[in-house]
Each structure stands twice: as structure tokens, then as C-alpha cells.
């Protein structure tokens, strides 16, 4: 028995090593892509999100009606009304059309703050992590202060004080998401900073800027990016929530959160029409969440 298993185990070990070498020679991103391809959940989410994006971009071509044009005689029609497949809202505007157009603002308000926070947070986080010392202490203590607010409360407080409007909501949300990104960026940078190849680069005379640009950024951007994608879902929920409170977009602009808010009065008349915009928010948010989980696994990011 032992005579037959021993070579097989060694062979298996060799095969594993060969496969690892093959994967390594393909490069990191090829490996990531290969792993994503084998993950059906991530693929399905990516396809749904792409379809939604396409539907929003081509909204003027596929939407059956004008998103602002209402009609007093066709108010609050149920789902399945001829010519209005998803019914009409409290001003007689076509729901399907407004959902298609509404995604543009909802996605914009969900993604822009995270993208801005990613850029700003990475800058300060890498700075704090690489520089260490006093600079690290100042940046991290300021971060602690904003961490002391629950995220929804901070977003409501800032945009509530500044007043309603898309710019104010985006500003508030960006401020909410900078501290968590700084924390992640700082901790991964500290992990990379003390590795041998960074020491070697420094010893060979590379300046701080070069070391960060060439050796540090390549190793920290991945984990920070994965973390940032996991924030898009939260950001979209809070952004639509701000509009739901009347703090984000202003009527008559179509936006999912604001649509939920104005349709709330119709909840006793056309309950199922009234909850439709929320279905869109939910679908987007869950897809972004699962996509981020899939990316995290494929890119082998811990935490």
C-alpha cells in the first residue's frame, strides 16, 4: 500500500507546484480573472450590474415616456396598465421611465463619494502608514474623531447643516467614507513598509517618493480598492436614504430614494407601485456587495 501511495503523493505535490508556477507566470491579474470566471455568483452580479448600467445609459432610447411629463388623468395606475407596464406615480408620470432615468443619479451618488474617498483616503492613509511618527499620529487621531460618529448620523448631520442638494450630499458622504479608507490604507501600508524588498529599495538609495510609487502602491492599492468596493453598497443605501429624507436630490429630478419618498403618500392606493424604486436600490446594493465579496476572494485579500 505504502509503495503505491508514496510516488503518487510526490507526483501530486509536483503537479501542484507546476500549476502554481504556471499561475505565477500568467501574472497576478490573469490569476484573479481565472478565479472570478469560476465564481458564478460574482459573474451573475457583474452581468446584472452591467445590464442596469446599459439600461440607464440608453434610457432615452428605451424609455417609453418622458420622465418629467405627468398627466392629471393617469395618476397612480397599477402595475400592468397598458402603455405603463409598471404603473404611474402620484403625478401621472411613467414609473418604468423614471426608474430607468432615476438609476443615473442614484448610481452617481453611490459611486462618486466612494471614488473621491478612495483617492483622498488612500493618499492620507499611505502617507500616515509610510511616514509614521508625528504625522501618523496627527492623521490617525483626526480619523478617530470622525470614527466616533455613526456613519448615517454624520451624513445626515453634514448634509442637514449644509442644506438639500446633490453637491452637499456628495460632500457629506465623501467625508463619511474617508476615515474608514484611511484606516485600511494605513494598516496595509504599515504591513508593506517593513518588508525586505522595501528595505532593499531604500538601502539602494531610492527616495521616499520613488519607494512609495514603485514598491508600496502596487502592493496596497488592491486591498484598499477591494475595501472601497464594499463601501459602494452602503454608500448607495445612505445616498438614497438622504434623498428619501429630502436631503439629496430635489424634485422633480428622478432618483430612486426621492421616488420612494414621494410615492410614500400613495402607499394605501398603489402599495406595490410605491415600493418599486426600493427594489432597484436593493438589487444594486446586493449585487455590489456580492461582487465585492467575489473580488476579495479572487484577489486573495484578507480581512
Amino acid at each position: 500500500m505504502s509503495l503505491t501511495t508514496a510516488p503518487t503523493a510526490a507526483e501530486a505535490e509536483l503537479a501542484v507546484q507546476a500549476r502554481q508556477a504556471q499561475a505565477a507566470s500568467d501574472g497576478y491579474w490573469a490569476g484573479v480573472f481565472k478565479r472570478v470566471r469560476r465564481d458564478p455568483v460574482t459573474i451573475v452580479c457583474a452581468v446584472i450590474l452591467l445590464l442596469m448600467l446599459a439600461a440607464m445609459v440608453f434610457a432615452p432610447l428605451i424609455a417609453p415616456h418622458d420622465p418629467y411629463q405627468g398627466s392629471m388623468i393617469r395618476r397612480l395606475r397599477p402595475i400592468g396598465t397598458p402603455n405603463h407596464p409598471l404603473g404611474t406615480d402620484e403625478l401621472g408620470r411613467d414609473i418604468l421611465t423614471r426608474l430607468l432615468y432615476g438609476g443615473r443619479l442614484s448610481w452617481f451618488m453611490g459611486i462618486t463619494p466612494v471614488a473621491l474617498a478612495f483617492a483622498i483616503g488612500t493618499f492620507f492613509g499611505v502617507l500616515a502608514g509610510y511616514a509614521g511618527g508625528k504625522l501618523n499620529m496627527v492623521i490617525m487621531r483626526v480619523t478617530d474623531v470622525f470614527y466616533a460618529f455613526p456613519s448615517v448620523l454624520l451624513a445626515v448631520a453634514i448634509s442637514g447643516a449644509l442644506g438639500a442638494g446633490i453637491e452637499n450630499a456628495i460632500l457629506a458622504l465623501t467625508l463619511v467614507f474617508i476615515p474608514p479608507i484611511i484606516r485600511v490604507a494605513e494598516s496595509v501600508t504599515q504591513g508593506v513598509r517593513n518588508l525586505d524588498f522595501v528595505d532593499a529599495a531604500r538601502a539602494s538609495g531610492a527616495g521616499a517618493f520613488t519607494v512609495v510609487r514603485v514598491h508600496v502602491l502596487g502592493n496596497v492599492l488592491g486591498p484598499i480598492f477591494v475595501y472601497a468596493t464594499s463601501l459602494i453598497s452602503v454608500c448607495m443605501i445612505i445616498a438614497s436614504g438622504l434623498s428619501f429624507l429630502g436631503l439629496g436630490t430635489k424634485p422633480p429630478e428622478p432618483e430612486w430614494g426621492l421616488m420612494l419618498n414621494t410615492l410614500r403618500t400613495a402607499i394605501y392606493v398603489q402599495p406595490w407601485v410605491a415600493v418599486l424604486p426600493g427594489v432597484c436600490i436593493f438589487m444594486t446594493s446586493i449585487c455590489f456587495n456580492l461582487l465585492s465579496d467575489g473580488l476579495r476572494q479572487a484577489m486573495d485579500v484578507k480581512g
Partner: peptide, 15 residues
């Protein structure tokens, strides 16, 4: 649970 917009879930519950 973490992806649901809870204000919307509240509306669905009311419905």
C-alpha cells in the same frame, strides 16, 4: 440583511 435599504423594508412591512 446588510444590503437592504431598511427604510424601503419598512415600507414593504407597512404594505
Amino acid at each position: 440583511g446588510v444590503s437592504v435599504p431598511h427604510y424601503w423594508l419598512g415600507m414593504v412591512m407597512v404594505v
